[in-house]
Nucleic acid binder design. Structure first.
Length: 494
RNA sequence: GUCCCCUUCGUCUAGUGGCCCAGGACACUGGGUUUUCAUCCCAGCAACAGGGGUUCGACUCCCCUAGGGGACGCCA
């Protein structure tokens, strides 16, 4: 049987490095085995999924040259490749499970479930479904369904014993069924949850090897159970370690830029980023650290994947990216730099404001230094202000970050509005409020218009620079953070 | 809180019972090359979490403790 692997991102946000990491190993393994790599869009959360996010994810993976053999854009023999377009498929499988007793309908209200959960938590138990609707008679279920009562479908889980399965990286793992919740498989809106659609699709699409993130280990019993109920053969499982922040926690945008596009915009080469990702939890037999994707495919050995979560170290990424840059011929360097710097999308935005402030072309570069390049190194003194204390400056930087974080639309108009409201609500004149922001973002007290700058910089870079500025000012202690949380909550930001 | 996973230099890692008083890389420090800087070269710093076993012999196998992480949603 030919190897088939997949990556199944959920289109609910900006493209994440973790997706690229998982995709890389899936694709390389399939390619090495002469198999196929499939991209499936897990848009089972109708409320949070968006077409824009899906398009962004596809673009980001393509930028990294992580293209696929079958997917929503190119089709394939086992499509469609979006959960939202395969609903009848899950419906029939759910019906089958209900018929064989592997699943049941549940009419409990979210309120009741909340109460149950709270009570269990209070008693120190693992919160999970209490089996309330398990005892409903067939007649009653039929009556309530016919009456159009909203309900979900839940997985029936054994009450005792252990679920034993094998992770190819860690070995045998055993989890007591007691720990496993009677997971919802079909939501009341008729959409499947991940657990149903992923398991059904993986089987139907002939997936042979599942390489996914470690965070899925604890839900494996549910998947094993579904496969048992259907009598299907389970795939080989590989749980790759989670990429980590410096403090070892799961990599998150709060502590690290996690967006693929952030790295693209900073001028990392896709092949370098891919190479670096390949060294996370894996190493070449000869310990070589710079290697091409082709060599990765040739030498990939899933047995060499380590279970330990690697810290994503930007400094080492920088070194590796530098190696790749130096290996470029002069022509290549010029071309690739030009295409990076000339990225129309990004720079059209600043042309207008630049033009107004330019008398000769030689004045252009100095003005955009902090946008095209890294921000000038700044020191604490740079933030000293005639009427703001250091503590207030920190507060402003923090509040600005919070305000930007909540924006639904990243455009200078909204950005300005959000900052103005925040300044007003926290009692600072706009003039004072923006002063520290100019320093933090541009490294200078005079720069191109702030809101436009922020728009062009993007959320991740803006967040990174604001945070770095706060660090320069001594950071925020836990105690101070709590106080800021409180003040922030009190603001009336209509 | 419950369950699961993990534990070699600050970081990425090599190591599958003797080759290891632990090797490479990034970072850092010092030196050399270079008009400066970067590159490059050389050197240095620095780790097997702790405690019990098993064994002639443990970084490697087992157990316990500690620490870290993850999961516990009609999110994925």
């Amino acid at each position: 049987m030919s190897v088939r692997t997949r990556v199944a991102p959920s289109p609910t946000g900006t493209p994440h490095l973790g997706t690229a990491y998982i995709a890389l190993f899936n694709k390389a393994f399939a390619e090495q085995q002469g198999g196929d790599f499939i991209l499936r869009i897990e848009d089972s959360d109708a409320a949070r999924s968006s077409k824009q996010s899906e398009a962004d994810i596809l673009d980001a993976l393509k930028w990294l040259n992580l293209d696929w053999d079958e997917g929503p854009d190119i089709g394939g023999s086992l499509g469609p490749y979006r959960v939202s377009e395969r609903l009848s498929n899950y419906e029939s499988h759910a019906e089958e499970l209900i018929g064989t007793g592997g699943a049941f309908r549940c009419f409990c209200t979210p309120e009741r479930l909340d109460d149950v959960r709270r009570e269990q938590q209070r008693r120190g138990e693992t919160p999970k479904y209490d089996g309330h609707c398990l005892s409903l008679s067939d007649d009653e279920v039929r009556r309530r369904v016919d009456a159009g009562e909203p309900h979900v479908v839940r997985l029936r889980v054994p009450e005792s014993g252990d679920c034993v399965f094998t992770d190819q990286i860690r070995g045998e793992i055993s989890i007591p069924w007691q720990q496993v919740d009677m997971q919802v498989l079909v939501k009341s809106d008729g959409f499947p949850t991940y657990h149903l659609c992923a398991t059904v699709d993986d089987h139907v699409m002939g997936i042979t090897h599942i390489l996914r993130g470690e965070e899925w280990i604890s839900s494996c019993p549910k998947h094993v159970l579904i496969y048992d109920y259907f009598g299907w053969q389970f795939q080989e499982l590989f749980h790759l370690p989670l990429l980590r922040n410096k403090d070892q926690s799961k990599m998150s945008k709060r502590k690290n830029p996690t967006g693929i596009n952030f790295y693209r915009d900073r001028g990392y080469l896709p092949e370098a980023l891919l190479n670096y990702l390949a060294t996370m939890g894996w190493s070449m037999p000869d310990e070589r650290e710079q290697f091409s994707y082709v060599d990765f495919v040739k030498d990939l050995d899933l047995g060499r994947i380590t279970p330990r979560g690697p810290v994503f170290d930007v400094e080492k990424l920088d070194w590796l990216n530098g190696c790749y840059i130096r290996d470029l011929s002069d022509d290549e360097f010029q071309n690739r730099f030009a295409s990076w710097a000339g990225d129309e999308q990004r720079f059209r935005k600043i042309v207008t404001m630049l033009k107004a402030r330019t008398e000769r072309f030689d004045q252009v570069l100095p003005q955009v230094d902090y946008i095209v390049g890294d921000r000038q190194p700044i020191e604490k003194d740079a933030f000293s202000h005639k009427s703001l204390s250091e503590e207030e400056v920190v507060k402003i930087l923090d509040f600005a970050a919070r305000a930007l974080e909540e924006l639904s639309s990243w455009a200078s108009g909204e950005i300005g509005e959000a900052l103005r409201t925040t300044a007003e609500e926290s009692g600072y004149p706009m003039r004072d409020f923006v002063a520290p922001l100019f320093i933090a973002l541009s490294g200078r007290s005079v720069a191109l218009p702030l809101f436009d700058s922020i728009e062009v910089l993007g959320l991740e870079l803006t967040r990174t620079r604001l945070r770095s500025a706060i660090e320069i000012l001594g950071g925020i202690s836990n105690k101070k953070l709590k106080k800021l949380d409180k003040e922030w909550a009190k603001l009336d930001r209509a």
